[in-house]
Design a protein around this nucleic acid. Sequence first.
DNA 1: TTTGACAATGCAAGCGCTTACACATACTTT
DNA 2: AAAGTATGTGTAAGCGCTTGCATTGTCAAA
Lengths: 349, 349
Amino acid sequence: MQPEKTRKRRAFSAPKIDDVAEIAGVSTATVSRCLNTPDVVSPDTRERVMAAVTQLGYEPNFGARVMAAKRSNTIGAIIPTMENAIFARCLQAFQEELDRNDYTLLVASSSYKTDMEKQQLRTLLARGADAMLLIGFARDEEIYEMLEERQVPTVVAWSYRAGSRVASVGFDNKIAMREFADLVFKQGHRKIGVISAPTADNDRASERVAGIMESAAANGVDPSAIEIVETKYSIDNGARAAHAFLTSKVPPSALICGNDVLAIGALKAARELQLRVPEDLSITGFDDIELAQIADPGLTTVHVPHREMGRRAAKLLISLVENPRHLPSEQLATRIVKRGTLGPAPHSS
Amino acid sequence: MQPEKTRKRRAFSAPKIDDVAEIAGVSTATVSRCLNTPDVVSPDTRERVMAAVTQLGYEPNFGARVMAAKRSNTIGAIIPTMENAIFARCLQAFQEELDRNDYTLLVASSSYKTDMEKQQLRTLLARGADAMLLIGFARDEEIYEMLEERQVPTVVAWSYRAGSRVASVGFDNKIAMREFADLVFKQGHRKIGVISAPTADNDRASERVAGIMESAAANGVDPSAIEIVETKYSIDNGARAAHAFLTSKVPPSALICGNDVLAIGALKAARELQLRVPEDLSITGFDDIELAQIADPGLTTVHVPHREMGRRAAKLLISLVENPRHLPSEQLATRIVKRGTLGPAPHSS
DNA sequence: TTTGACAATGCAAGCGCTTACACATACTTT
DNA sequence: AAAGTATGTGTAAGCGCTTGCATTGTCAAA
């Protein structure tokens, strides 16, 4: 076993409230009030106290503060993975907004596993997270129960549902994808292939697929005849899936991908198979990551306001923490970005 | 029953150690020991306690624990920005490793500003971070002093210096870039342009530039004649800088970029100017982000083991927290990845 | 002057946990 | 059999802060 030893105390311990109180010649209560409710202390006392604070570089001990005040100015976020640029960007904006409001971010990543998410949530709450940011709606009921029981303000990003029990900041993945798919069918494509992220426990992915199906039906294409391949987020996986589609007996004339990364992979596969895009094959993505505009030809995709989503989520969460009540979800607009990968279906069958 | 005291925020408070103790029929001390030093309690007591813990879904209150134990099992990281994929990936691996060891990650991003970093550090330490991960060495002396004074185990990632006061996990940016630049000069390029990230407060960027200069000198090219443009991390900035270079009177035959993102921008600019890469113009990057292999032609660059860096940094930090001592820095290997953007210099002047 | 009302501050009780220390058993040694 | 040595557990003293309540000082109205 590990020989756990006496932990060394910090040689120099951080200044504490008593030190500040002594220097300023007031009680600790007054120091505390200066920091938390400055308006109730007289201006000149406040000034003296703040001077002492600055002089010592005093920063209240977090643990003590949380315990005493029962709030931590910390907001937790559980995201599938930071490695995905869309989450990273959203999280960055989220963090910046929190920072502006003196909140700190506690992150955990669930790797898309809902059971991990449960444990992470427990941990973050134990760590005093005042509120939580989650991605998407799909997760164990138990998680929602815990959140509700403990009355933790929560917002879901990346999805939008008007009457949901927890507030959300996002967009309707199904509608966004449906409208986008309409565009594909309008170009005359009848035989399409769908490459999606795994839809289990992922409402964004499954709703996007559903959107495609609705669009197909509306455009006179039999949804049940559409082949769907699910594969994990990575360029190579996208390429592999596309390769399989394109080398089948009756290859599709368009590949609708659930996200840009898969689409980029598809583009790569097409290039390897010497297919011209969009003349021989159309490819579409979703998210509008930076890569999408760099690809050659540029990827036709749906723009998602990642950063704004992060910022708005932070604002909503903060206002929920400071004044618990029911707040309406916020719907963000997505935008179809036409670049070069979507073209009319080839004439020959 | 006695009327409930008005609770501040939570209607339902999380289970506490007393609840567990009562159910298990032991004292709180024993519960605490079960959780922290399980080997000192008798097996059957432990079993009863753990059953109670599970039954209640008990999770020790973080603030209380930090206060009492003077350690938080939290490690802080201050990175320039999560938006940069290289940091996101490193951070993700870092987080995963922490998680495996029951540590939690506290993140802050400094946006490359050293004064922000100072404040963030203060905050993270007040929040009980047991240790810190920082990126690169360049920062105010004051920050190092604070770290030393409080004896906070710290590791610097992304750079490597053998005898540095704080341990580092990374590579020698200067040498890596120098060897890479050697390759460029060996291809006959005499007139090169350098596009770098801002070098102020960024030793990775400045060392890479220094590496280029050393290589130039060693290869008979006057370093002082090499033009350097510094611009912030973004594809568009890279494109702009490249455009300026390529439309000057005597355009360079090779553009050495401080990172892949700038290089991709340069590639875009070249395409817009109808220059063939690498026939008319060579371009190199650094980092080997995913984009690098997708670009067409593939970007010749230096591969940096981002994920491993994160993982190793986490391991080092944890071992430092659990047993404070001096630990040697770890040097990671980078690897030159030849793809399509570097070719011999054109014959004609 | 007396008396409220109010503003500013101090006092001290926790917040939920860890851990030094004390204590009670159960074995070993002499 | 007495004394020593482990071993397992309980007791209770904090950890550094916030905040309800008590106290003091001021000023305006009675």
